[in-house]
Amino acid sequence: MIWLTWRQWRAQALSALGAFIVLAAVLAYTGPHLVHLYQASGIAECQKANGDCGPLIDAFTSHYPLAHVLGSLIILLPAILGVFWGAPLVARELEARTCDVAWTQAVSRTRWLSTKLVTIGLGAVGTTAAFMIVIAAWSSPFDKVSANRFSPAMFSQRGIVPLAYSAFAFALGVFAGAAIRRVLPAMAATLGGTAAARVTVQQWVRPRFAAPFHISGAVFGRGASPTVASNAWVVAARVVDAGGRSIQVRRGLLRDTCHIPEGQFGRDSLRVCAQRLGIHEVLTVQPANRYWSFQIWEGALFVALGVALVIASFVWVRRRIG
């Protein structure tokens, strides 16, 4: 069964390997230059001196727009593999009726499906891992200067969650193929389902893995106030009035309410005015030290969903088809 699995998947596996080798070569070639640019940029010294490093960072990050493309690749790769490796796994056999051949040889459907699931599933997770590792290594200078790893965009590009997404998307593809029995609709369902699951978890589930902290601070303060650690995840920021209701701050309205004279109108007078009125900002924060526990929670969630889909796929292939 392993022979047939490999023979049918060979071309796709080798194209993925080829794409990986090309990417790895490009990154190996440009990587040292990127490190050099970072060292020459003076950002490290600037940050040590607690200066305003924004312009330096902007100048540095503008060198390689490729970084954004690579980031998107890590985000999209699990879904791509689910669509192209997972969805056709059962559906193409049903569509081409080759399952009539495969399922009448002396191999049970359970063994047929489990061999394919394990081989190609591990292939999908391994491919995601390989791409993520080389891209993360290449991007490490960028990660140092700009990205907060706990921010929604970066959280799903690093750590263990991309592997869990990949396992989930693959299992979803297999199940969709077995349930829908047509390749193209199964691919569409896999893409849509993966996107929906990830957006749902990111927006509504991930913030609830642990109770957040609420931090209050003045509005119109200096810098990013109220201050939180740079690696914490600011889930939400809102401005509230003295009664705790969310409000929109309008400078004009504050000026009129506090009768700020024309000459004194500015951040300082607005801050004083807001304080007098009890208006302040409240941040919902997940502290930086929860990063790995959140990675594990989210990874476990997607792996659990994937396992459920695998079980459903076995039930479908063994009992529902036919």
Partner: peptide
């Protein structure tokens, strides 16, 4: 078993 239209693995 030989299924109708003799399906085979095309590639």
């Amino acid at each position: 078993f030989l299924a109708q239209d003799a399906p085979l693995f095309g590639s």
